Structures are given as structure tokens and as C-alpha cells.
Simulated scan of single mutants.
Amino acid sequence: MTSIILIQLDLTSDPAARRVVKDETVDVQFAHEAGSLMSLEGPNRYEIGDALITGATGERWVVSRDRFDAKYVPRDEIKHGDAGAYRNVPAAVLAKQMHEAFSIARSDAGDVLHGVAGDWVMQYAPGDYGVVKAARFAKVYKPA
């Protein structure tokens, strides 16, 4: 299967891109040692303190601690930094549904993620990317 490789993607001027907002409560554990977990889209390496997230639809992924602290708030009377339920801080991001298989690095020299036709490539900030399966996108993202 051939796929396109996305490099230095900029969705800000792509007419097929949409602005969307995630609406989700997730379960979070914090890494006690460096390692890697396999998400549906590819490997996610992590360092001590990074957030190991399980989404509302069962998918797992990693968010670096500095990004996590800015993007998630605790729920259910837990303190920030403790394991438990967190809700994302609503923020508009750019997304584009892809019509063929593709791959993209999460960041410069970051893990490479893979998507199939129908999945979404996400641009959270310049040089900061993700891949979201079509079914998950439909459940947790809404128009901004």
C-alpha cells in the first residue's frame, strides 16, 4: 500500500481544512519512566512525567507534560498532576480529512503517525501534528 508523506504541512491556507474543537474527558496516568506506547496511528514515545491518555472511545496516546499542563484541566476534585479524569481545554485546531493513506511526523524528528483514507490530519500549532481516525473524529470533534 502506498501512502503520501506529509512534510511541513500548513493547513492555515488549505481550503479543505476545517477549524474544529475537541470535547472530551479522558483518563490520565503520568509516566514514571521513559517508554513507548502504540496508538492506533503509530508509536508514541514518552518521558518521565508525560501524560499517558486513554480517550473516551478507548484509544491511547501520549501528550508531553508541558503540552498537557496547558491543554487539560482536572475533574472530580483531583489535583493537577494526579492520575484521574481530565477534560481538554477547548481550543480550535485545524483538521483536514484525507482521501488516501498518509503519514506525518508528530513534530520535527518526532514519531511518525499513519492514517488511512477517511482519517483526519490535525494541525495543533505550526510543526505540531496528529492523526485522528474517522470514527473518533466524528465522536469528539465539533465545528469551531
Score class of each variant (00 low, 15 high):
4 I>S: 04
17 A>H: 08
63 V>P: 00
129 Y>G: 12
33 E>N: 08
63 V>I: 14
87 R>F: 05
25 T>N: 08
121 V>R: 04
115 G>V: 11
69 D>V: 09
13 S>G: 14
29 Q>G: 03
139 K>A: 15
132 V>I: 14
21 V>D: 05
67 R>A: 13
72 Y>S: 10
48 I>V: 15
63 V>D: 11
10 D>C: 06
81 G>Q: 10
62 V>C: 10
82 D>K: 05
144 A>Q: 08
29 Q>Y: 02
46 Y>L: 01
66 D>F: 04
143 P>E: 14
78 I>C: 07
37 L>P: 05
43 P>W: 08
96 K>A: 07
111 D>P: 12
2 T>A: 10
47 E>W: 00
38 M>W: 08
5 I>K: 13
36 S>T: 12
114 H>R: 15
39 S>W: 02
81 G>Y: 07
8 Q>Y: 06
69 D>N: 10
122 M>D: 07
120 W>L: 08
101 A>E: 08
94 L>Y: 04
141 Y>A: 06
54 T>W: 00
10 D>T: 07
128 D>A: 15
50 D>N: 10
7 I>D: 11
110 G>T: 11
40 L>W: 03
57 T>S: 15
48 I>H: 11
67 R>L: 13
76 D>I: 04
78 I>M: 13
58 G>L: 09
30 F>Q: 01
59 E>Y: 12
82 D>C: 04
33 E>Q: 15
20 V>P: 03
51 A>M: 08
